[in-house]
Design a protein around this nucleic acid. Structure first.
Lengths: 331, 331
DNA sequence: CGTTAGCACTCGGTAGGATCGACTGCCAAG
DNA sequence: CTTGGCAGTCGATCCTACCGAGTGCTAACG
């Protein structure tokens, strides 16, 4: 698609722009390693690259800036997949070595880790509870008219929901329902969960209510942890853009579906408008699935301005998702 | 401390500045209702107010801006406590009417509500789990070497922690420990939790481990929900301030201890440096405790620039904390 | 024929200067 | 004590000149 020299020039522009955030001129590019021609030649080539949509000029007498298409070519053909550097590898290793405790906490801390490593916002999406085998179900009375339903899942996560119960429901019924649910749900998943009738009216009602409320509540929700949003404040100089981005990142479901969508499309990088979330069109997203035993149980991602360090982000996201998968695997 | 006229002038300056974010001049103040004197007189008075530290001048030929001390006097003596307006009252009422489900979710949504009503960041701090009576304890096996400990508390919240167990721990031991814990912990609180030995080594070990891990993890943590951070992007024009504020708000424990500290000191408003968190010295915090049956079970708060609408924030925070308390009371 | 040096040109960014206007402080009169 | 009047201050705005980074074009060069 692009000859070697154009590719080298594009690469130089992208890297320089990522480093400085300033439009880059022909002279800089000419001096870049791998480009052994004069600035005049570079200018000619850059004019072509601009016509073909890889570069843009903020204004007539400024240097060139990569377009989304330019970044796309860069990540597809130029940013060599690359290993994370030694320091990153070590930090990630140490992190997961020390990681312990609840799933939610670990995912939360993972997003902090990614933020720290990439200096960008980070997203970690956990497994849908609806797809994880149930290990235990329990109904606990809170008051005469309220109880809480607690499900424990095989990955150690716990979900609960409060239900209202009739005044005359006895403790015995609650206990019976707990036993009944636990017996029949073991190792099933919420999505396909159902229990046979016992014949006892009160118990059956409780079981149905408990299941309904858990399914209704948890079916399509995936826990998401977004960290490092404060880095966005510096990423853009337009206040309005910052506000929009922050506002969007506050809406958890938007972020989740954004990440899910990219992963589902088999992509690992979505640049600018590619991800289709309009308020984030100045942002790129780098994601990687978290895989345990061949199962896709979550995703990790980095979100930053389109002018972000793609090779580093890719390498970091890869190593983190890999190690997170291993860690979850031997939980 | 201040005669009526000075107070009226200060009040006018504060209100005008809150509304416009511009330094306010003597002419504006002279025209304000309640100030029946000429601009010249106002100037004289403002000079005094400045000397006494209630007002400041950004530069010689600009209008006056309230200082932290000025805001303090305003909230203490001028911003009449005030009822929330009808719309707010209605919205809050409807919100808690419709609110249901898990405590965590309700608190989260409450912070969104506060953000929407006050157009500022909002903080909701839930009860320390260590202080809520335990309703149930359960140990559930996850794998041959891992289990999760689940505690259900009287307010419907659930906390869990993953523990490692020896390879040879039997299901029977887990069940025994579960029963033992539940029997002895019912209606106790984590802070004072302990269970007698059973004599069975494996069971006792499990019980001790489960208690330790829950106490060690949950003792001093209070769940906090921070919403509306994107509003901070517009509150300040200095990018650096925005970044600092956002960064600070991302550190949950800072926010929690900030709110807790203010509530503990019996204050409802902390202005600028009063709260002692340096990176937030451009911010004020308005808080109210959430009380259920005379017990302080949490706090709600609003965080914004010192130039915020204190009367509205106070009224809103009050009504929300009140209604939240009621809602939790009849849960 | 591709490459390169040279050159005229463009245009954003910065600096200096004038002007404007929203203030203030002060003073003298009411 | 209050107030109208007035001189003075100083940021904000606008203009202009200018600089310089960077471009496109052209003509020479290997």
């Amino acid at each position: 698609m692009l000859d070697d020299r154009k590719a080298a020039i594009l690469s130089a522009v992208v890297q320089e722009y990522i480093a400085t955030a300033q439009p880059v001129g022909s002279t800089h590019v000419a001096h870049a390693p791998g480009v052994g021609v004069s600035s005049a030649t570079v200018r000619n080539e850059m004019a072509v690259l601009e016509q073909e949509g890889f570069l843009a000029q903020p204004h007539t007498s400024a240097g060139r800036v990569p377009t989304d298409k330019g970044y796309r070519f860069f990540v597809d053909h130029l940013g060599r997949p690359g290993q994370a550097d030694a320091l990153t590898t070590r930090q990630v290793g140490e992190f997961f070595q020390a990681a312990h405790g609840r799933l939610e906490e670990m995912l939360h801390h993972t997003s902090d880790l990614l933020t720290q490593l990439t200096r960008n916002a980070a997203v970690v999406v956990g497994p849908k509870v609806a797809e994880v085998p149930i290990r235990s179900a329990q109904i606990v009375r809170l008051s005469s008219t309220a109880a809480t339903v607690v499900f424990v899942f095989a990955n150690g996560s716990v979900d609960n929901e409060v239900i209202e119960i009739a005044d005359d429901v006895s403790d015995a019924s609650l206990a019976a329902a707990t036993v009944h649910l636990s017996t029949h749900l073991g190792d099933r998943v919420l999505g396909s969960a159902s229990v046979p009738d016992t014949g006892d009216h009160a118990t059956d009602d409780l079981c149905r209510l408990a299941l309904d409320v858990m399914v209704g509540h948890g079916t399509d929700e995936e826990p998401a942890y977004v960290g490092g949003v404060s880095t966005m404040a510096e990423a853009f100089d337009a206040v309005e853009v910052v506000r929009q981005v922050l506002h969007t990142l506050e809406q958890q479901f938007v972020v989740v579906s954004l990440v899910r969508d990219i992963v589902d499309r088999g992509m690992s990088v979505a640049i600018g408008v590619e991800h289709g979330v309009e308020p984030l069109s100045a942002c790129s997203v780098v994601v990687a699935p978290v895989v345990v035993d061949g199962e896709h149980v979550g995703s990790v991602g980095v979100l930053g301005p389109t002018r972000m360090n793609y090779p580093q982000a890719l390498a970091t996201v890869d190593i983190v998702s890999d190690q997170l998968g291993r860690r979850l695997g031997d939980g």
